[in-house]
Write a protein that binds this DNA or RNA. Structure first.
Length: 1099
RNA sequence: GGGCGAUUAGCUCAGCUGGUUAGAGCGCGUCGCUGAUAACGACGAGGUCGGUGGUUCAAAUCCACCAUCGCCCA
């Protein structure tokens, strides 16, 4: 009937069979083609780069990605899972540079961009085979045949189209940008390259330049003129003297107190002349020690706008308006922790954003190759300055010395701090403003925030935390890169600065006057395309585009979408696949892909306040974020909470786990061990525990069913409807229904942790260790066909439903169970669980009272087991009577429905139900705090005291009768409903009893000879069963049994002969030995020795 | 330096809007049970709920500060 099932299973082996089956029968393809009455569920694959071997962290994100498309497919959605590969970017270039032994960009150009990019192109798919194998092995269904690849011409052309849209709206502009620049190789470094090169404990100058304040302005500012000295200086502090020529402002802190101080002209020359200084009052002592005398104090605000003299001039670009320069500004970024509280600002070298904020001009002191410019000289002098051409770090000392000499430096010393260096050649970096192309995301900041409100973040704190804060502090997106292996920026420029942004190959062909449809859109080929327009020659700007822009363009570029040039079908395709219903990546993508998708979608779908389309996609899809639900995964660490890294040797290779425990166990462990956003501790041991705890239990339940169903061949189609089955079956149906409802809701809320834990508890605790254990006799013993068929049908339905519920999480095991159970009964059913429909809950099966009563039974059984253990009487020995008390009358009545289960489970002959006020039960009473706490407030301690002295039996009676109890507390009278109190029943004297929260179970342990003999009979059964097992018999084999027993034991065996025979499937029982090669073994029961002989007989 | 998150038993984790005696699984010990289960059941050992202070009749839970770890940014 069903395919035979082994009692233990090798999941990895099973999974390989299922993979083979999926492949042969094209199950994934069929899941895409099956009817989708619910429409599209859109999933976006965040593209990985296939250059390295995939690790556990890749497995985890793919496991989470896979779950929801499977779930939604079963719910009747169509889920197109287009794969994708990220191919461009600096890490690829660096890998190639490393292979070629290059340390600078010049070497790349010398080698040839064409050859270099060719190496990059082949490198990015170096490990594609490993990726594909891993993807298939873990059951990640993704359409890899039709994957998008970011280096494809079509993909690049789509990014061009997007850039043109933004350029035309004035959102793609060129401006200065602060970058970490390596003057040794004249290159901007990417942020992660910068962090590679940070060095601790670097010695740098620490100088205190003196900027002469304008006396008139000071007067106006209310700073009192003091003494004879005409010179009042702002005392600043800097570690980069080479930037002093680029100074255009000084900043002070609003709200802070500043001081006018008289102190020596130079540090360490106390006896000499004094100067007047302005600095933060809090820092006077730190700077001057005992040598400074505070003459006056005033708020920092007073200093706003005061002019001062620069100590060095710099190179002023043509057209720069210097009117705003050399004044004091106010800004909260100024700190009073170190320095002087007066900050020297050089917008060109690190303070660009502050400069913008305060409208300061940007002037320069050092070239991009690290040489000091000739314009750097003392004000009022002319000709090339004394530092012209000097390496900028070498100039520091000369500048400091000259300023000391000119009386414009109070002190020159050194400090140790961390500073970034070029990670390749160890030369210092410069923080410098360079021209760069920006995407003006700040122009749509409000829409970015508004769209974020429409996204469901898991975990939810990301929404207003990490992501929301990032959006609130949004700065324009620096888009251009001075690199080679990337999508080229489609901007062509004439010598006089006219720019054309090209939106398609067709447009470029038109401009160039030749057909470029075969043009390879990478450097260097695209650089070779120039054209003339209006008599001017246009060349492409030398930049590539930030790879994050490409990834963010994926919703459009994966279809090679190019807006207005497209057919209606192409528009439809885009609209049907945008926005995403679900995406999932690790938390580090918050400012990566999560942001790039969000920013581009917001820009492209923007509408004006009155709903007019601004972005080119607004008319298609309206204003929308790029995704509606997003899971941001925590990172994975080893079992000690440490980051996995090769150097620590704690990296777990996914294949060791996949080969030993299998993909389902790995997936299930990932989903259930902690919520998606949590940092995950991971070890193979934990996955192994998942196998033992969940999969083995599920499998043995399934094995049990198949084993007995194949013996009995029940006609499942003829089973009575669930409502008409025995109580315990109806209970199982009710719990199963609840489970379906809950799991569906949990998955719809993107809570795989809750769903997997919920299913695990049902399968292990309720299905296996309660239902099957309690009911197993019904499967192999029942003479009652109705009862037996009900049991088979109930277990069958539970197993099939569980197989469907776990299908999205454990796609292999679920399919193996489903296929055997369902297709053996109904060959017309879908051939894979992944083509089946998600279970629906029939709420009418949820019988609340039944659920409550079973819960009561379980509780009483638990207490009963504890009481039996405490009684010293072994469980096999029947006891005469069980005494039970439960908190309410309703529960008591309900429990009576399960009396048979109670008697069997606790091996007891009868049960006595105690009235809730039964005389020999003592009570203690506690307040039900959640209920009365708020009402009583400060009177709680008084109530506790009152309850110690109250007549507990009266309260118990009131509870039974539903009457209120009146208690006076501190002069005030309170009426308490029965629920206001919790009654704990105390164990009666002389009984083996256990009580908890108003439940009580007690045993009468007086044993009669009859009961003792029954206990012996059960011992006998157990020994015979053991002997059967030792003899290597099958469960269903029938035997002839020979018993050599004496005395009490002989009598016990005689009295319970029929039971013995049926329990051990004995055809015949002889009191004597069976000869002729019968299996034989000896044992002992209660001091009586015995010999068991048995041999199988044919049925 | 800033932002976000975490910190509960030896390990992995639950603990909802403050409220009964802080729980589960694994591991450990003792006992029991077993012809579906590499299981199961009972009992036990194991916790200053990261620390300090505060609010409250009542704090693992709320507030403040601090510490450690992780991620992101500077």
């Amino acid at each position: 009937m069903f395919r035979e099932v082994q009692s233990t299973v090798s999941l990895p082996e099973l999974e390989r069979e299922i993979i083979e089956f999926w492949r042969e029968r094209g199950i994934f393809r069929k899941s895409l083609q099956k009817p989708a009455p619910e429409g599209n569920f859109v999933f976006y694959e965040g593209p990985p780069t296939a250059n390295g071997k995939p690790g556990v962290h890749h497995v985890i994100s793919r496991a989470y990605k896979d779950l929801f498309p499977r779930f939604k497919t079963m719910q009747g959605y169509h889920v197109n899972r287009k794969g994708g590969w990220d191919t461009h970017g600096l890490p690829v270039e660096i890998a190639i540079e490393k292979r070629l032994g290059f340390t600078s960009k010049a070497q790349i150009e010398e080698y040839g961009i064409e050859r270099f990019n060719e190496l990059c192109r082949s490198y990015v798919f170096e490990n594609i085979q490993d990726w594909n194998e891993m993807t298939e092995r873990i059951g990640y269904w993704l359409n890899l045949d039709d994957a998008y690849i970011t280096y494809d011409n079509g993909y690049i052309e789509s990014t061009w189209w997007i850039m043109k849209q933004l350029f035309d709206r004035g959102l793609l502009v060129e401006d200065y940008k602060t970058t970490w620049h390596s003057p040794s190789s004249n290159t901007t470094l990417a942020s992660h390259e910068v962090s590679l090169g940070y060095q601790e404990d670097v010695e740098d100058p620490s100088v205190f330049p003196k900027f002469a304040a304008n006396g008139q302005d000071l007067l106006k500012a209310g700073v009192p003129p003091e003494g004879d000295s005409p010179n009042v200086y702002f005392l600043a502090w800097t570690t980069t003297p080479w930037t002093l020529g680029a100074n255009t402002a000084l900043a002070v802190k609003p709200g802070a107190t500043y001081a006018l101080v008289q102190a020596p002209k130079k540090h360490g020359q106390e006896a000499e002349e004094k100067d007047l200084y302005i600095l933060a009052h809090d820092l006077v002592e730190q700077v001057f020690g005992e040598t400074g005398e505070v003459l006056a104090t005033f708020p920092g605000e007073n200093l706003k706008g005061v002019r001062y003299e620069p100590v060095l001039e710099g190179q002023v670009p043509a057209g720069t308006d210097m009117a705003a320069a050399y004044r004091v500004i106010l800004d909260d970024f100024v700190t009073l922790d170190d320095g002087t509280g007066v900050v020297h600002l050089a917008p060109a070298y690190g303070d660009l954003d502050l400069g913008r904020k305060h409208g300061l001009p940007t002037i320069f002191s050092v070239s991009l190759t690290g040489e000091v410019m000739p314009q750097v000289r003392a004000p009022g002098t002319s000709g090339d300055g004394p530092y012209a051409g000097m390496w900028f770090k070498d100039a520091d000392e000369h500048i400091a010395n000259d300023l000391l000499e000119r009386g414009l430096l109070y002190r020159s010393t050194t400090i140790r701090h961390s500073y970034p260096f070029n990670w390749r050649d160890g030369t210092p970096l410069m923080n410098v403003a360079k021209k760069s192309w920006y995407l003006r995301t700040t122009a749509v900041k409000e829409q970015l925030l508004a769209n974020n409100e429409r996204i469901n973040w898991v975990p939810d704190h990301i929404k207003h935390g990490r992501f929301g804060k990032w959006l609130e502090n949004n700065v324009d997106w620096a888009l251009s890169r001075e690199r080679y292996w990337g999508a080229p920026m489609p901007i062509w420029e004439s010598d006089d600065g006219e720019r054309i942004c090209v939106g398609s190959v067709a447009q470029l062909s038109e401009l160039a006057g030749r057909d470029l449809s075969d043009l390879e859109l990478h450097r260097p080929y695209v650089d070779e395309v120039t054209f003339e327009k209006d008599g001017k020659l246009f060349r492409r700007v030398p930049y590539t585009v930030d790879v994050w822009f490409e990834s963010g363009a994926m919703p459009y570029a994966q279809w090679h979408y190019r807006g207005e040039q497209e057919t209606p079908q192409a528009h439809e395709q885009l609209a049907a696949n945008f926005p995403a219903d679900y995406i999932c990546e690790a938390v580090d993508q918050t400012r990566g892909w999560f942001y790039s998708l969000h920013a581009l979608a917001t820009l492209l779908t923007a509408t004006s306040e009155d709903g007019e389309p601004l972005g080119p996609l607004a008319h298609l899809v309206g204003s929308t974020p790029a995704y509606k639900n997003v899971i941001s995964l925590g990172h994975i660490v080893d079992e000690n909470g440490e980051k996995m890294s090769k150097s620590k040797g704690n990296v777990v290779d996914p294949w060791t786990v996949l080969d030993a425990q299998g993909a389902d166990a790995l997936r299930w462990n990932l989903y259930s061990s902690s919520p998606p956003g949590a940092t995950k501790r991971f070890s193979q041991a934990l996955v192994d525990e998942t196998v033992r705890d969940f999969f083995n239990t599920l499998w043995s339940t399934y094995y049990f069913f198949v084993l007995y169903a194949n013996l009995d061949e029940p006609d499942l189609a003829a089973a009575p409807p669930a409502q008409e089955r025995p109580l315990v079956d109806r209970w199982l149906a009710a719990r199963l229904t609840q489970l379906v409802t809950e799991v569906t809701e949990q998955l719809e809320n993107y809570d795989p942790t809750g769903a997997t834990r919920n299913i695990r508890d049902f399968v292990v605790d309720e299905l296996s260790n309660w239902y099957v254990r309690r009911n197993r006799r019904r499967f192999w013993k029942s003479e009652d066909d109705f009862d037996k068929l009900s049991a088979y049908a109930s277990l069958y339905e539970a197993l099939v439903t569980v197989a469907k519920l776990i299908a999205p999480m454990a796609p292999f095991t679920s399919d193996a169970i489903y296929r055997n159970l369902v297709l053996s009964v109904d060959p017309e059913a879908p051939e894979s669980v992944h083509l089946a429909h998600w279970p629906t809950a029939n709420e009418s099966l949820i019988d609340r009272e039944l659920l409550r009563d079973m819960a009561t039974l379980v509780k009483v059984v638990e207490l009963g087991r504890a009481a039996r253990a405490g009684s010293g009487v072994k469980t096999r020995q029947p006891l005469p009577e069980l005494l039970v008390r439960v908190p309410t009358e309703a529960q008591l009545e309900g429990l009576k429905r399960f009396e048979r289960e109670l008697l069997e489970e606790l091996n007891v002959k009868s049960v006595r139900y105690l009235d809730v006020t039964a005389d020999f039960v003592e009570y203690s009473i506690r307040p039900n705090l959640p209920l009365v706490g708020k009402r009583l407030g400060k009177k709680i301690p008084a109530l506790r005291k009152a309850l110690e002295e109250i007549d507990t039996r009266m309260v118990a009676r009131n509870a039974r009768d539903g009457a209120t109890t009146t208690i006076e507390l501190e002069g005030e009278t309170f009426e308490f409903e029965p629920e206001a109190f919790l009654l704990d029943a105390k164990s009666p004297e002389g009984f083996a009893a256990v009580e908890e929260e108003g439940y009580l179970a007690a045993f009468d342990t007086r044993l009669s000879p009859e009961l003792l003999r029954e206990g012996m009979a059960r011992d006998l059964v157990r020994l015979v069963q053991n002997a059967r097992k030792n003899a290597g018999l099958e469960v269903s084999d029938r035997i002839d049994l020979g018993l050599v027993v004496d005395g009490e034991l002989r009598q016990a065996a005689g009295e319970h002969l029929e039971r013995l025979k049926s329990e051990v499937l004995a055809h015949d029982v002889n009191f004597g030995e069976l000869g002729n090669g019968a299996y034989s073994e000896s044992g002992e029961i209660e001091g009586n020795s015995l010999t068991i002989t048995l041999k199988p007989v044919s049925n």
